[in-house]
Structures are given as C-alpha cells and as structure tokens.
C-alpha cells in the first residue's frame, strides 16, 4: 500500500466511523413511531444537510472499500498488479456513481 492509499483509507475510516454512527442512530430514532417512504422523502426533499451528509458518506465508502478490498486480495489471493488496481478503480467509480445517484434521487424526489 502506498502512503496516499494508506492515508486515504485512514481518513475515510474516520469519516465512516462518525457517518455510520449518525446514520444508524438516525434510523433508530426516526422509525420509533413507524415511518413511511412518503414521510422519509418529505424530510429529505431538498434538504441540503441530508444531501451533504450522505454525499460525504458515499465518497468515504467509495474511497475506503476498494482500498480495503485491494489489501485483502493482495494478502489472501495471488491476484495483484495493474489489472487488480484497474478493477478496483472501476469498483470505486461504481460505488461513487451508484451511491451519488441514490443520494441525488432522494434529494430531488
């Protein structure tokens, strides 16, 4: 792992530690009296706070997961080298695109 990947994985882990905690706590709090999809969308629609929080969340996931998978692949399989890096870069972009697509969809819904 290069220093850039190492730092990126550590910093994204710090973001995720906070983001996952907020995400789970919010879910548990929000559904305590029952919640419909319509009520969720009513709260998230054009809510810039929601948008920024989950946009950062998605960027952290798209950073953290491929680097971690790269380490696992290198240590637990014989697969390494440029092809692995390209595949995981594509995976990172896929996570970013799919995640942001969901965040934007809920924001504008």
């Amino acid at each position: 792992m290069t220093p850039v990947l190492f730092i990126a994985q550590r910093v994204s882990a710090m973001v995720l530690a906070l983001a996952v905690a907020v995400h789970l706590a919010t879910i548990l709090y929000a559904i305590r009296g029952g919640l419909t999809a319509g009520e969720i969308l009513a709260r998230t629609h054009h809510n810039i706070g929601f948008f920024l929080f989950y946009a950062i969340f998605v960027v952290a996931v798209a950073t953290h997961a491929p680097i971690g998978l790269r380490n696992i692949m290198r240590e637990w399989t014989l697969w390494r080298g440029p092809v692995l890096d390209v595949v995981l870069a594509v995976f990172a972009v896929a996570l970013l695109v799919l995640g942001m697509r969901a965040v934007i969809a809920v924001y504008v819904a």
Partner: peptide
C-alpha cells in the same frame, strides 16, 4: 519502505 510491500502493510 513506502511501496506495496512496505510499512503500510
């Protein structure tokens, strides 16, 4: 010591 086999492993 910074490469893929380096200290960050």
């Amino acid at each position: 010591v910074a490469g893929d086999g380096g200290c960050q492993c």
